[in-house]
């Protein structure tokens, strides 16, 4: 009986550890982006050109990767209750960067035409390149 009991306890312990571990991984996933060294650092013009020249190649290179894009702010929008920074390029397409909730405060201080570095996960290209979970890299702002 005691053996059975401790076996059950052991199972519960393992199960709890698995759950906690899963929870930690799930939670830290987003904040990881902030700490992750970007796989690529590119200018807004370069990444757009890569997507417009050959979308398939650019998809393979950038999708799912944490990347850092350098560019000037075209506008900041508040559509759909999200803060979105759009970086300008030399065409009428841009880089759409959906800002992570933890970085929302920083958005208010941004100005049009300001040069910034934005780190996020690349999701692909429609008419603009789309980045989600974006963090603004202040340390690099005035390069």
């Amino acid at each position: 009986m005691i053996k059975k009991h401790s076996f059950f306890k052991g199972c519960m312990l393992v199960f709890s550890i698995v759950c906690i571990n899963y929870f930690i991984v799930a939670c830290s996933n987003q904040n990881n982006i902030k700490e992750t060294v970007p796989k690529y650092i590119v200018s807004a013009d370069t990444i757009l050109l890569e997507f417009t020249t050959n979308e398939e190649t650019a998809n393979t290179k950038y999708i799912h990767k944490v990347i850092e894009v350098v560019g000037k702010i075209k506008e900041v929008t508040s559509l759909n209750n999200r803060k979105t920074i759009i970086l300008q390029t030399n065409t009428n397409s841009g880089i759409i960067c959906d800002v992570n909730d933890s970085d929302l405060k920083l958005v208010n201080d941004l100005k049009k035409n300001q040069l910034i570095h934005i780190k996020g996960i690349c999701k692909g290209y429609l008419k603009d390149v789309i980045l989600l979970n974006c963090f603004i890299d202040i340390t690099n702002q005035h390069e």
């Binding site: 559509l79 759909n80 999200r82 979105t84 759409i96 959906d98 999701k123 429609l126 008419k127 603009d128 789309i130 989600l132």
Partner: peptide, 8 residues
């Protein structure tokens, strides 16, 4: 529920 905020 899932949301996409970047639909063209």
């Amino acid at each position: 529920e899932a949301k996409n905020n970047q639909v063209l």
